[in-house]
Computed example of a mutant assay.
Amino acid sequence: MNQADPLTFTDELLSRQPPRGIDVDTTLAHFAIITCLIDPELVRPEIHSRFHLDLIEHEGHEWALLSVVPFVDQDFRFINVPWPKWRFGQTNYRVYVTDSETGEHVVWFIGTSLDSWTVSIPHYLWKLPWHRARIQFDCAFDAATKRYTTYRMQTTNSWADAEVELTDTGQTPTELIGFDDLETGLVILTHPRKGFYHRRDGRLGSYSIWHDRLQTTVGDVKTARFQLLEKMGMVPAGESPQIHSVLLQNQTEFTIYLPPKVVASSYLPPKVVASSPD
């Protein structure tokens, strides 16, 4: 990625706004960022015109970056009502973009699969593109070597069935293809704090999160089938996407600032591609 100034993990980027109200804290386990190389022309129609795709060059081609991010919410809990806790699997589909109004590197959320009845709250109340699914993880983490010996995830009965099997080197990343330097790549891929999306009523929505700097290891793909990307025409039917990188972290803490916001005076026709019935 060619840009004038490299990105770094500044104090401002890592600072945590104190949670309040209905904000959420949660411990995420089996956190993986599986980043795919996608033809920019196939991604642009999904993105609001306010945002520009973050593009890299690789092997003579220009690519957009789309990550599939599976994990387990181990103790999803509201700050002010901490005693009810929920545990569920989740998988996010996100594209890396720059906000033309602020210059910030953020993500565009295509949607989320979530294995819990609680998905009804964001789906109906806040009109988020979140969908009910059955998500199963089969993971074994070796604490001594700080690497996964087994990492499998399968999503079924959903708008976005998926099957993933990863290997883990246990080594920290030393480079990320297409980026001028490693830290710039890590800031973009692992540390977007804001996300935008098409609400289910067509308007532009936004949310924000916080987490500390991730301490990831480098993985590789044995199996990666994402039905959503096939349905959207981003990957040929029956094929796996071209993989840019796999980053793994056994556990990390997240804060989610709620409720998500409706961006004023923005409206788009409701998205129907790859959506699930109500």
Rank of each mutant, 00 (worst) to 15 (best):
K127V: 06
V106G: 02
G219A: 09
F226H: 13
F226Y: 11
A143T: 14
D220A: 14
D201T: 11
A133E: 02
R200Y: 04
W159D: 10
I209L: 12
R132L: 14
F141N: 01
L176S: 03
A144E: 15
T155R: 05
F141A: 05
F141W: 12
Y148A: 09
R132Y: 14
T217F: 02
F196C: 09
M232T: 06
E163S: 15
D220R: 10
R147F: 00
F196A: 10
H123R: 13
K146H: 15
T217N: 09
G202I: 05
L228P: 00
G103V: 07
L204T: 08
L182F: 10
D168E: 07
R200A: 08
R203Q: 12
P173A: 04
W210V: 02
Y124Q: 13
D161T: 00
V187C: 12
G103Y: 04
T216C: 15
T118A: 03
D212W: 03
L229N: 14
R203P: 00
E183L: 01
T155W: 00
T190R: 07
T156C: 05
A224L: 14
G185Y: 08
V221H: 07
H191L: 06
T184W: 02
L228G: 01
R193T: 11
T172Y: 03
H131T: 13
R213Q: 15
W130Y: 15
T156I: 03
T190K: 06
L204A: 03
L228R: 14
K127F: 04
L214V: 01
T155G: 01
H105W: 09
F226P: 00
L176V: 14
Y148H: 13
D142R: 09
K194T: 15
R134L: 06
A162G: 02
F196Q: 06
H198T: 01
A143H: 08
L228K: 07
I135G: 08
T149N: 02
V107N: 14
T167P: 03
M234F: 05
T174Q: 15
D142M: 08
R199D: 02
G185C: 10
T184P: 00
I177N: 09
S206I: 07
R147Q: 08
I110E: 05
D181L: 04
F137M: 14
L228H: 01
Q154T: 14
R213A: 12
L186V: 01
I209K: 13
A162R: 02
Y151L: 09
Q136E: 11
F109N: 04
F109R: 10
G178T: 11
V119G: 02
F109D: 03
F179K: 10
T174A: 12
